[in-house]
C-alpha cells in the first residue's frame, strides 16, 4: 500500500477550494504537455475553469454553445482526427442530456473523449434539483469501456486530469462546484484505478468517493473517540473498480459503509454491493442520496439534510454497527487482539 500523504491539517483546519479549480489547472498543464489536447465547452467556460486553457491555447479551444449533444459528438470527430478532447459542462447536462451520444460516438466508437461533468452533487446548492446531478455515476459506470473518476479534492482533480490526458480513452471526470476541503498534498499519489486506504481500521470499512472522502475521514476520527476502528478507503476511480483493495478491506473488517454525494442506486454503493455480493458477502450500508431529487438550499445545510456530514456519518455508522454483525473475515485478517 502506498502512502497517501494526507494533508496534516485535514481534520483541524483544512484548506478549501472547489474541485473544479484543480481541473482547470490540470487541463492547462495537460495542454502544455501534449499539443493533441483540445478543449470543448458548452457556454460554461469560466465556471468549468476552461478559461485557463482557452486563453493559453485559443486555437485548440472550441466553443460549441449550449449544445451538449453536439459538444461530445464534435469531440468524437476531433478524437478520430487524432486529438485528445476534453468536453466540459455541468454534469446535469453532460452526461445528463447527451448520454446516448457519449455511448455511441465515444465509448462504442472507441474514441478517447473525456467528459467533464462539473457541478455534480447537491453542493450546487441554490440552483436546486434540476442542476444537482446525482445520477451521473450510475449512468456512466454502466457504460462498457467508460472510466469513471470522482476526485476527492482539487489537487487530486488536477492530477486526474493530467493522468487522463496521458492515457486517452473514453472517460468521465466528476467535479463539484462548491469549495470543499483539500485532503491531499502535492505529494499524494494519483493513478487511474487504485483505491487508497487513508486510515487503517478493523471494525468497518468506510468506502467513499469524491467530496465524501473528507467527511468519511471526519467520521473515522469521531468513531475512534468512541472506540470504533473505522478504515477509510478512498475510491477516486469508481470504474474500473479496484476490486482487490476493496475486498482486502472488507475481508478485514467484515462490514462496509459506502458514502457518495450521488444516488446510491447503481452508484458507488451499487458497485461495492455488486462486488461484495459475489466475492465476499458482507453487510453494506449505502449512504448518499436515497432515490430522491435534490432541492434548493445552502450547500452546507443540504449536506446536513441528506445526513452526509462527518458527524452524521459517524452516528449512522455507530448505530448500524450495533445491529449489523460483521461477515466472516478473511483468515489473513482475523483480529489480533
Amino acid at each position: 500500500m502506498s502512502e497517501y500523504f494526507l494533508d496534516p491539517n485535514v481534520l483541524t483546519a483544512p484548506l478549501l477550494e472547489p474541485i473544479r479549480f484543480g481541473f482547470g489547472r490540470g487541463l492547462l498543464a495537460a495542454g502544455e504537455a501534449d499539443e493533441r489536447v483540445v478543449a470543448l465547452c458548452a457556454d460554461l467556460v469560466e465556471s468549468t475553469r476552461m478559461h485557463l486553457f482557452r486563453d493559453r491555447f485559443p486555437d485548440r479551444f472550441v466553443e460549441v454553445g449550449i449544445a451538449e449533444q453536439n459538444m461530445v459528438t464534435v469531440a468524437a470527430g476531433m478524437a478520430h482526427a487524432g486529438k485528445i478532447p476534453f468536453t466540459s459542462s455541468y454534469a446535469a447536462f453532460s452526461p445528463g442530456r447527451n448520454w446516448e451520444q457519449i455511448k455511441t460516438t465515444a465509448a462504442l466508437n472507441r474514441q478517447p473523449v473525456i467528459v467533464i461533468g462539473s457541478h455534480a452533487g447537491i453542493n450546487v446548492g441554490y440552483d436546486g434539483a434540476t442542476h444537482q446531478m446525482l445520477e451521473d455515476i450510475t449512468l456512466m459506470r454502466v457504460m462498457p469501456g467508460m472510466r469513471v473518476i470522482a476526485p476527492a479534492d482539487s489537487l487530486e482533480a488536477e492530477k486526474a486530469t493530467m493522468a487522463l490526458a496521458a492515457d486517452p480513452a473514453p472517460s468521465y471526470l466528476r467535479l463539484a462546484r462548491d469549495k470543499t476541503p483539500i485532503i491531499s498534498t502535492p505529494e499524494s499519489p494519483f493513478e487511474i484505478g487504485p483505491a487508497y486506504v487513508l486510515v487503517e481500521g478493523h471494525d468497518v470499512s468506510l468506502i467513499a468517493t469524491g467530496t465524501m472522502t473528507y467527511h468519511a475521514l471526519v467520521a473515522a476520527e469521531l468513531l475512534a473517540g468512541q472506540g470504533v476502528s473505522a478504515e477509510v478507503v478512498h475510491v477516486p476511480t469508481i470504474k474500473p473498480l479496484d476490486e482487490d483493495a476493496i475486498l482486502a478491506s472488507v475481508g478485514k473488517t467484515g462490514r462496509a459503509i459506502t458514502i457518495e454525494e450521488a444516488q446510491t442506486i447503481g452508484g458507488l454503493g451499487g458497485a461495492i454491493c455488486e462486488l461484495t455480493a459475489g466475492a465476499h458477502p458482507a453487510p453494506v450500508l449505502r449512504l448518499g442520496i436515497q432515490d430522491r431529487y435534490g432541492e434548493t438550499g445552502d450547500p452546507a445545510q443540504l449536506l446536513k439534510k441528506f445526513q452526509l456530514t462527518g458527524p452524521q456519518i459517524a452516528e449512522a455508522t455507530a448505530e448500524w454497527l450495533q445491529r449489523s454483525p460483521a461477515a466472516h473475515r478473511s483468515p489473513t485478517h482475523t483480529d489480533a487482539e
Partner: peptide, 29 residues
C-alpha cells in the same frame, strides 16, 4: 461499428450524430 471492419470510420445508428463528428474532424483539419 468502427474497429472491426476496414473502412468504417465511425459507429452509427442512433440518428443525428454523424454531421457533428464530421464537423469535429473538419474543424481539426
Amino acid at each position: 461499428e468502427r474497429g472491426t471492419l476496414p473502412g468504417v470510420e465511425s459507429t452509427s445508428g442512433p440518428l443525428g450524430s454523424g454531421l457533428s463528428q464530421a464537423a469535429g474532424y473538419a474543424h481539426v483539419l
